Amino acid sequence: MLRPASSGASVVVCSTCRLSADRREDDEGRRGGALLAAAMRDLQKAEQRYAAIAVEEMPCLFSCSRHCAVHIRAAGKIGYVLGDFPPDEGSARAVLDYAVHHAASEHGQVRYADWPEGVKGHFIVRIPPEGGVVA
C-alpha cells in the first residue's frame, strides 16, 4: 500500500535495514535503517541547512545485501540508491550533505568534487526520472 510522500527533495530510508552485515538489530531491538533515519532527523533539528530535505522511511528497499540503504530523489531528477552505511551521525551527515547538492543540481548529477567523503563507494544504482533517461 502506498502513502503520500514529499514531492520535493527527499531521502527515503529503509526503516527495516540491518544494523550491520552481521547484525540484524542493536541490543535494544532497533534496526539500522531506523537508527540512520533518526540520526538524520536529529541533524535536521540541529542544522537549518538540512531543513529542505524530507527524511522519509519505508520498510524494505530490497537492498538487503547492502544494509542501511537510502534512496535520494527529487522530482524530475536522477535518483540514487546508496547502502552499506553504519547507522551513525557521520553517515547521516554525508547522506544529507549529498542530498543538499543533489537538490541544488539541475538534473540530479552532483560533481564528484562535491561528493562528501562518506558517500564515496556507497552508490548501488542510479534511477532515471520518470519520462527521461540519461543522455
Rank of each mutant, 00 (worst) to 15 (best):
residue 70 V to R: 03
residue 28 E to S: 08
residue 93 R to H: 02
residue 96 L to D: 01
residue 93 R to I: 00
residue 104 A to T: 00
residue 79 G to F: 10
residue 102 H to L: 07
residue 47 E to Y: 00
residue 58 M to K: 06
residue 54 A to K: 13
residue 102 H to F: 03
residue 81 V to I: 14
residue 63 S to V: 11
residue 101 H to M: 06
residue 57 E to I: 06
residue 44 Q to M: 10
residue 24 R to S: 11
residue 28 E to A: 09
residue 98 Y to K: 11
residue 57 E to T: 12
residue 35 L to D: 06
residue 16 T to A: 13
residue 76 G to L: 14
residue 72 I to T: 02
residue 93 R to T: 02
residue 58 M to T: 08
residue 66 R to P: 04
residue 30 R to N: 10
residue 18 R to K: 15
residue 57 E to H: 04
residue 105 S to H: 03
residue 37 A to V: 08
residue 22 D to I: 04
residue 45 K to S: 10
residue 21 A to H: 04
residue 77 K to S: 11
residue 18 R to H: 15
residue 36 L to Y: 00
residue 75 A to Q: 13
residue 111 R to G: 08
residue 17 C to K: 14
residue 110 V to N: 10
residue 36 L to C: 12
residue 71 H to T: 13
residue 19 L to E: 11
residue 52 A to G: 06
residue 23 R to H: 06
residue 119 V to K: 02
residue 53 I to L: 11
residue 37 A to R: 06
residue 66 R to F: 14
residue 78 I to Y: 14
residue 89 E to I: 03
residue 119 V to F: 02
residue 93 R to W: 02
residue 83 G to P: 03
residue 119 V to T: 02
residue 127 I to Y: 15
residue 25 E to D: 04
residue 69 A to W: 06
residue 37 A to Q: 09
residue 97 D to P: 03
residue 103 A to R: 01
residue 56 E to M: 10
residue 73 R to W: 04
residue 120 K to V: 13
residue 123 F to R: 10
residue 36 L to D: 03
residue 40 M to H: 00
residue 62 F to M: 09
residue 104 A to Y: 01
residue 124 I to A: 13
residue 94 A to N: 01
residue 74 A to T: 04
residue 41 R to V: 12
residue 127 I to R: 15
residue 47 E to I: 00
residue 112 Y to A: 15
residue 119 V to S: 03
residue 48 Q to R: 09
residue 21 A to F: 02
residue 95 V to A: 00
residue 43 L to Y: 01
residue 97 D to R: 00
residue 58 M to A: 04
residue 79 G to C: 09
residue 112 Y to I: 05
residue 77 K to H: 12
